[in-house]
């Protein structure tokens, strides 16, 4: 289903190109030149992304992540949860059932939010693409701020939910 939708999206864009070709030929020729330069820039990076994704799939499976959530206390716990988030792979909704299980086991909402934010802070397999477009200094600053924000968001959500349950 998901695959079909992606193909439909691509076909619609191709159709737009075909229609516009008859209206403005130059625009489409220039767009295709730009498209080719973009593809040449990003496609080689996919090999590296594939290897990194495979390694993360191998080492960071669900059971390991689940253990990390309850293995430590205090600041260490926050740090481990952010790292677990960073190292987790796949779409976020794939992790919802695991997060619900953790919640049922008594893990507070803030830790779940921290994990989800950590996932967004840094995607190791996608780093080659990020580096292709942005400066390393910018990426490092962005990741650092987002890791801090992951913990801040977790703390705020924990405080809010503790107030709700009072």
């Amino acid at each position: 289903m998901k695959k079909n939708r992606s193909i439909y999206f691509m076909l619609i864009v191709i159709l737009i190109y075909v229609v516009l070709f008859f209206i403005n030929k130059n625009l489409i020729i220039n767009s295709l030149k730009f498209f080719m330069s973009l593809i040449i820039k990003i496609v080689p990076l996919f090999l590296l992304i594939l290897v990194l994704m495979a390694l993360l799939n191998y080492f960071m499976h669900r059971e390991r992540i689940e253990r990390l959530f309850v293995s430590r206390k205090g600041i260490r716990r926050w740090a481990i949860i952010v790292i677990a988030g960073i190292l987790s792979s796949g779409p976020v909704f794939m992790w919802f059932p695991l997060l619900r299980n953790l919640r049922k086991k008594g893990v507070e909402y803030g830790y779940l939010a921290c994990f989800m934010y950590g996932r967004s802070a840094l995607k190791i397999p996608l780093l080659p693409m990020f580096i292709a477009y942005f400066d390393i200094a910018y990426i490092v600053v962005m990741m650092t701020v987002m890791i801090i924000m992951a913990v801040v968001q977790g703390l705020i959500i924990n405080i809010l939910f503790r107030k709700f349950t009072e």
Binding site: K2, K3, S6, I7, F9, M10, I12, V13, I14, I16, Y17, L20, L27, N30, S31, L32, F34, F35, L38, I39, I42, F46, I49, L50, M53, A54, L55, N57, Y58, G90, P125
Partner: peptide
């Protein structure tokens, strides 16, 4: 792990091509 990662990237291919085409069109237009 490799085949799962490969499959994920393969599924992204039409989206990637469509997005790159759209970016090219918008940037040029």
């Amino acid at each position: 792990s490799f085949s799962k990662a490969g499959l994920n990237l393969w599924r992204l291919a039409p989206l990637l091509i469509g997005t790159a085409l759209l970016i090219a069109l918008i940037t040029t237009a």
